[in-house]
Design a binder for these strands. Structure first.
Lengths: 209, 209
DNA sequence: TGCGCTATTGTGGATTTCCGTAGTCTCCTC
DNA sequence: GAGGAGACTACGGAAATCCACAATAGCGCA
């Protein structure tokens, strides 16, 4: 059977215990969810790409790389994937650490199938919101990257509210040149005023949270 | 002995066990921290005001109101106080719930004194940051509250990037009137341009996070 | 060498913004 | 009734923004 494409929205089950993987595979499939199974943190991370969509269900205790290590790595990678952590042993410090490392939930085995599905569905909804926000961020960052160094300088001063005349003085250039850069900046962002641009970039900053 | 003023930065210990309260009182005082003791969640919340500063050390299991209930209430009150939760019984679901309800940490008794102090110091540092951000937010909101209804309307359209002429059309008034409102708005915020205002308000939005 | 890109500048004209000065009208409070 | 606040408007003039059209210079690459 061919695994679903990496960009398909899927529940990624990461557990070194094959019985658990199969059990969860069945559970999520029975709810109409797409599932991908990984027998180790290493295998999952090796396959990870920024285009990966969905939600991760991660066992905390595995041979080799631990669940906490996986969480660390996902954070470094600035992954958008929400992670629901499972543990076979009630362990408060590990639960606290997992949540602090970005896990969205932490459940003890044996886990109630309905409860787990609800947590995963919540995770999928969160990822969808993160995905939309991240796409907007990416689009803006791409436009930002099209700016020449000079345009970038002018934009920063524009957004500080300086008059063209003041920017010209600061940079030691003609006011007409400032106008030219200004027009180019607005054109590259597809906006008609500095205020509109500021609004856009504020959205970007908000999306970072 | 007179308790410290409510606005003093203090460690608020909330626990129905007098022995624990005394023990923690001693611990924090020995580190030069100011301490306030509360024998119940109810007592603590009855004294709560927005001006209360510091960090809370909260027992999760108490007669009467539970630690989780206190967390719920603090969230409703939009309290800035970071909360470190203590429990006498390892309990993963409670730990997870606490953190989801906004606790910054969760520790099991018997707790290592040094570790607890470190967590509380981290909480105090976090509260200091929150306090600064909240003050800035409050100052802006106060200015926002000085705007007349019409000024508020004009400001919203200004920040959408509309020209004065367009705003005049939209509101069915003279362009000169738009200019008057515009100038009043900028004056009330102490800024010199719409772009500067947008920057300020973006900071406010960021501070909400 | 030729081309594309970036940075720069000038001219002239139109539009927009800003604001002092001056005034009217309505509503509310004392 | 008097005064204050808010909303509104007009005139005239100055400053700022915007831009078409036109041009030069430097750099990197094929």
């Amino acid at each position: 059977m061919t695994p679903p494409a990496i960009e398909a929205v899927a529940v990624h089950v990461v557990d070194d215990d094959a019985a658990i993987r199969d059990s969860l595979d069945w559970l999520f499939r029975s709810r109409g969810l797409t599932v991908r199974l990984w027998e180790s943190g290493e295998a999952f991370l090796a396959a990870w790409t920024p285009a990966m969509r969905g939600c991760v269900v991660l066992d905390v205790r595995m041979a080799g790389m631990s669940g906490l290590d996986v969480l660390d790595r996902l954070e470094e990678l600035t992954s958008l994937l929400p992670v629901v952590v499972l543990t076979g042993h009630g362990d408060v410090p590990v639960a606290v650490q997992s949540l602090k490392k970005g896990a969205v939930d932490f459940l003890e085995k044996p886990v109630d199938g309905g409860e787990l599905v609800n947590r995963v569905l919540a995770g999928l909804a969160l990822e969808a919101r993160r995905h939309v926000a991240a796409s907007a961020t990416r689009a803006l960052e791409e436009r930002l990257a099209t700016l020449s160094p000079r345009e970038r300088e002018v934009m920063d001063l524009m957004l500080d509210g300086l008059l063209n005349k003041q920017i010209a003085d600061d940079l030691g250039i003609a006011m007409r040149t400032v106008e030219v850069h200004r027009a180019r900046i607005l054109e590259k962002f597809g906006v008609r005023s500095a205020i509109e641009l500021a609004g856009r970039l504020a959205d970007l900053r908000r999306a970072d949270r």
